[in-house]
Computed example of a mutant assay.
Amino acid sequence: MRLYVLFPLLLLVALLAGCWDKIEVNDMAMIVSAGIDKIDDDQIELTVQVFIPNPTATSDGAGNGGAGGEGNVYTFSTKGSSMAEALTDLQKRLPRYFTWSHTKAYVFGEALARQGMHDEFDFLFRDIQPREQANFFICKGTAKKLLNSQIDPNTYETLIKLSQKPTTRSSTMHEVEALISGESGAFLLPTADLTTMLTNGAEKRILSISGLAVIHKKKLVGFLDNECTTGLRLLQHAVLGRNITLTRKEEEGSIIIRVMHSDMKLYPSINNGKWKMRVKVKLDADVVQNSTKLVIANGSDNLRKIEGAFNEEIKQTLIHTMEQLQKKLKTDVVGFARAFHKKYPHEWSRVREDWTPVFQSIDVELETNTRIHRPGITNVRVTQ
Rank of each mutant, 00 (worst) to 15 (best):
283 L>C: 15
302 N>Q: 08
250 E>Y: 00
355 W>Y: 04
255 I>L: 04
336 F>W: 08
282 K>R: 15
271 N>Y: 09
237 H>E: 07
264 M>A: 15
309 A>Q: 07
312 E>A: 07
358 V>L: 05
335 G>S: 07
250 E>L: 02
284 D>P: 15
244 I>A: 10
332 D>N: 12
344 Y>P: 00
281 V>L: 14
314 I>F: 07
282 K>Y: 14
335 G>F: 07
281 V>I: 14
284 D>N: 15
251 E>W: 02
242 R>S: 13
265 K>H: 11
255 I>M: 01
343 K>A: 06
248 R>V: 06
339 A>F: 10
239 V>F: 12
290 N>M: 07
310 F>T: 04
328 K>E: 15
314 I>A: 02
303 L>N: 05
238 A>R: 09
321 T>K: 12
276 K>P: 03
279 V>A: 11
351 V>I: 13
343 K>V: 09
305 K>C: 01
291 S>Q: 09
271 N>P: 03
325 L>N: 10
334 V>R: 10
297 A>N: 03
237 H>P: 06
261 H>Y: 13
343 K>F: 06
324 Q>N: 14
270 I>R: 01
345 P>I: 08
288 V>R: 13
337 A>Y: 07
350 R>I: 09
337 A>N: 06
310 F>V: 06
342 K>C: 09
271 N>F: 06
331 T>C: 14
308 G>R: 03
286 D>A: 14
338 R>W: 09
258 R>D: 14
273 G>Q: 03
304 R>G: 05
310 F>A: 00
332 D>V: 08
308 G>S: 04
308 G>W: 00
334 V>W: 10
340 F>P: 05
